[in-house]
Design a protein around this nucleic acid. Structure first.
Lengths: 237, 237
DNA sequence: CCTAGGGAGTTGTTGAACAATCCCTCAAGG
DNA sequence: CCTTGAGGGATTGTTCAACAACTCCCTAGG
């Protein structure tokens, strides 16, 4: 088989792989890297080499850099001029900042809720059930995922696109902090039942009560995470 | 003068112009476009042609596209695959959504404030004074700018980087809506004195009262802007 | 009037090239 | 021994030119 034809075939296949869906290549690369960062495969502090990723992902440097830019603005990567992009290492101030915004959005959303019914609460119910199931199995990774879903669905009740997006960024960044600490059970276990309690309050229509509980909940969660973070720094390198 | 030397000289000068400060070329291009969009020079719906801007700004397409990406994530441009970037045309749902998030953030920030003093309120005071001055002069563009500054400084009292950033995006997007309507006086005039009233409440330490006033304030502002927006659509193309 | 299809023009992506910067090493000097 | 500074290698920043892929508009045909 002649060489040029072979090359052309490869390019065609490559394109099919690249653009099967309606998003751009950069967006798909970003999605891939996003999942790696969120899943914790790339620990905080890791530098993402352009050369290396270009080689592995079979995209051009320009496209890769566009993907970097996307993730940088989601807070999942940090860009240092002339030094490259890194998986961020959140410090305790970042945790405070993240929980500050989190309390603002989540508590306010809950407090303003009205006209709740079983249908609207269904996604929340599913997330709580998934969390309980994961906890029973001892799968604390899944429990963490379910917890994130619970909070995302909680703010989704506000019906605001921008609140959803802001929360998504927020929770994604928070995941980085969770991966930085070693003990998932300690961080996730108490909140399985508290999510259930929160859902019960919402089902009863007690939004003010739910907002207060959520406030305390987030306060406790922040304290727990900060403590775990400090421990890790203490025993670190 | 030989041609190659001439080219080299131009490149050197071009680089001096490009990197006099510590930011990247893309960031400076973004800053330029940002001001054009925010000032209303580029009306909503305008398409920004890559070809044309590359010609005018003397940067490469890649750099320009990185600038686009920056502004897209600020909500100041929208990117449609294979169609280019546009100045967004906000519809009434967007206005509702923006004010929804705005009420959540601003009111909650105010409600949680404590330990206020004259020093911390100084930036707010300056913004109010600038607004009053602009109103006296009948400069409603400046009044709008001062108003934005007031609200940005208001949330800055929370001392949270991420709240600041979220608010900045929010207000920048809201500016687009202001430009889409024709009557700046009607939109800005009532809020010069209401900003003053809000500042007085904060100076007195009445945060709960201030939060309630801000809630009503934003409600009125939203209604006003939506009405102006509907008028414009009615008399539109 | 509606629908297919065929350019023309614009964006998406690539790969190579060069400039600018960072970081590590190593040697000279205090 | 420690500090300081000058290479040099590796990586990022930016540009350019080419081609692929897509959208939009216009036209021909039903």
């Amino acid at each position: 088989m002649p060489e040029p034809a072979d090359t052309a075939w490869l390019r065609t296949v490559a394109h099919e792989v690249r653009s099967f869906d309606r998003s751009s290549t950069a967006e798909r690369v970003a999605e891939l890297l996003r999942s790696r960062v969120i899943e914790g495969d790339l620990p905080p502090g890791t530098r993402l080499s352009e050369e290396q990723l270009v080689e592995v992902l079979h995209v051009s440097r320009n496209t890769l850099r566009e993907a970097f830019r996307l993730l940088t603005h989601e807070g999942l990567l940090v860009h240092r001029l002339h030094r490259g992009v890194f998986v961020p290492q959140l410090d305790e101030d970042d945790l405070v900042d993240l929980y500050r915004l989190r309390r603002t959005i989540e508590c306010d959303v809950v407090r303003r809720l009205e006209g709740l019914d079983a249908v609207r609460l269904r996604p929340l119910h599913d997330a709580v059930a998934a969390g309980e199931d994961a906890a029973r199995r001892g799968d604390w990774g899944a429990a963490g995922t379910a917890n994130m879903r619970f909070h995302q669905q909680l703010v989704a009740l506000a019906g605001s696109r921008r609140i959803d997006e802001t929360t998504a960024r927020l929770l994604a960044e928070l995941r980085l902090a969770f991966h930085a600490v070693a003990v998932p059970q300690r961080l996730h276990e108490p909140y399985v039942s508290r999510n259930r309690a929160l859902l019960d309050l919402l089902t009863a229509g007690e939004v003010e009560q739910a907002a207060k509980e959520l406030e305390a909940y987030l306060h406790d969660s922040e304290a727990e995470l900060r403590a775990a973070h400090r421990d890790r720094v203490g025993t670190g390198p």
